[in-house]
Design a protein around this nucleic acid. Sequence first.
RNA 1: GCGGCUAUAGUUCAGUGGCAGAACGCCGGUCUGUGGCACCGGAUGUCGUGGGUUCGACCCCCACUAGCCGCCCCA
Length: 432
Amino acid sequence: MSQIKAVRGTRDLLPPETELWNRVEATARRVLERYAFGEIRTPIFEDTQLFARGVGEETDIVSKEMYTWEDRPRAQSEKAQMLTLRPENTAGVVRAYIEHKLGDSGLLQKLYYIGPQFRRERPQKGRYRQFFQIGAEVIGPVSAGSESPLRDAEVLEMLATFLDELGVTGWTLELNSVGSAQDRPRYVEALRTALTDVAPTLCVDCQRRAVTNPLRVLDCKVPEDQEKIDALPKIADFLDEDSRAHFAQVCAALDACGVAYKVSPRLVRGLDYYTRTTFEFTHGGLGAQNALLGGGRYDGLSEMLGGPKAPGIGFAIGADRLVLTLQAQQVAQGASSAALLADAYIAPLGEAQQAESLVLARELRRASLRVELGDGTFRLKKSFEMGNKLARKIVLFGEEEAASGMVTVKDFQTGEQTKVPRGELAKMLGAQ
RNA sequence: GCGGCUAUAGUUCAGUGGCAGAACGCCGGUCUGUGGCACCGGAUGUCGUGGGUUCGACCCCCACUAGCCGCCCCA
């Protein structure tokens, strides 16, 4: 019988790596809560139509990368419903915003989420079929200030703070504006026109993109093409007055608080719902998947989903990539990824001491110490060997200790060995 | 979905058409209430899976699967 393995593009996260994941998530929660975001948990699967309408029928995500299936009808009369594992979380959050009439509060909704997303793509480093995102959305009625450029700047400043607190170094914030829902189609048309002349001189990939997805030509990395691509029409020249002023204010607010950014006229994002501000935080060392996180404004998404006017801005952090980046940094700094050592390893000496050794472990654990408990059948030498791998100190608990009430403690680092009354053990091991 | 590279011990990797290897790790001993260091000994395994060629395949061929790199696209 063949071995059952994790399916392609999925993987198990094991200790000690999960410690790093927890640190990333804990840091994100801490920072987000300082900015007064609250957590939202939406279902992991939704009606397929949500993504078709929100993300865009023609996007690759919807047209070929979703895990979609037909749900089993409960009765003959019921129509089978098409369901989809969420490929991203913004559409689900906006759906919840509409469904629960959150806009009726008259307040801005600031919601964050942490969870798995699913896309049926070809796996590579930093790209999995089940991947994890940490994201947030600021959405609400216009009267609550949801369109304000200050919201954009605040979100970007928060992300910079998050990466700094996490200790990520060497990131770059790339910023652009793709204009209003009216501006973008005009620009795409102009780009298409310009490309009819230029495309034949570009790389083969670009020749294809010029026809299938002109915006993607702007992403081309072939050095020889760069000059010609720079000469193509820029979206900045197609922005209306409002979008232009909005973008200028975002930049001004970022300048004021010293968050470094690079305006990237070529940064266009793949999802249909983006308007005006779009951004990416990138990092070298991630290969082709160089975006750590991305996001932007989606002023029309709520209406696209049949809801009220509710402009918003949000982002999604690729947690898998963030973890990869942090791991690479740790290796570069020579930091060990070894598991956290316990405060003590309790070694019962002989099976007669086993029950009481659990009592001792319980006392220490209730004092918030991290404790490993050995086994009374181990030879002393083996107890020491195991203790040395698992903990900073070993506590010997044999016949002698049980009788006298004095336990023997040895520090593995200093080699120092002492006897302490059992009642003082927790304190001696560093309990608060 | 397309192209390239790869798959051998727990891990990192050598290897040859004719007995399956190293290092680290693991287990045991020197050492029966004292770890690390040292020395001695031991087990590592469906050589990714399934076919084919051959007297004989870990090696050559085909298919499949998975990983990595790139493309597409994207966090």
